[in-house]
C-alpha cells in the first residue's frame, strides 16, 4: 500500500473515532477544564507551525524566497477580510509574479 493511502486510512479512522466519541460514549459529560484549555490551543499552535514551515522550510533548510512575498500578500488580503479562496489565489499570484520578475 502506498504511503498516501496509509495516511488517508489512519487519519480517516482516527478522525471518525474522535468525532463520534462525544455523541456515542460521553453523552452530556464535559472534559476537565485544564484538558479543554490545552485542546483549545492545539489549533493555533499547529497552524502557526504550519505557516512557518510551509513558508520558510525547504527540506531541512530555512530559505527566504517568493513564498514570503505570497505570505505578505495573503496577510494583507486577510486584513481586508477577503474570503479564504481569494487569499490563496492572491498569495499564489504574488509569488508567481515575484518569481517572474526575479525578485526571489
Amino acid at each position: 500500500m502506498s504511503e498516501s493511502w496509509i495516511v488517508v486510512l489512519v487519519v480517516g479512522a482516527g478522525t471518525i473515532a474522535i468525532k463520534s466519541a462525544g455523541p456515542v460514549l460521553l453523552g452530556g459529560r464535559a472534559l476537565p477544564a485544564r484538558v479543554q484549555g490545552v485542546v483549545a490551543l492545539l489549533a493555533p499552535a499547529l497552524l502557526a507551525a504550519l505557516v512557518a514551515t510551509a513558508a520558510l522550510g525547504t527540506g531541512q533548510e530555512l530559505v527566504l524566497d517568493a513564498r514570503i512575498t505570497g505570505l505578505a500578500a495573503a496577510a494583507l488580503a486577510i486584513a481586508l477580510r477577503a474570503p479564504i479562496l481569494l487569499v490563496v489565489v492572491v498569495a499564489a499570484a504574488a509569488a508567481a509574479i515575484a518569481r517572474l520578475v526575479g525578485v526571489a
Binding site: 495516511v7 487519519v11 462525544g22
Partner: peptide, 29 residues
C-alpha cells in the same frame, strides 16, 4: 507529505489538529 515527511508525521499532525472535535462533539452530544 508534500515536504517529504514520513506518513507517521502526517498522521500525527492531522490528528492533533482534529483533537478539537472531541470537545466539539461532546458539546452537541
Amino acid at each position: 507529505l508534500g515536504a517529504g515527511g514520513q506518513p507517521a508525521a502526517a498522521i500525527a499532525g492531522a490528528l492533533l489538529l482534529n483533537a478539537r472535535y472531541l470537545p466539539i462533539g461532546i458539546s452537541v452530544a
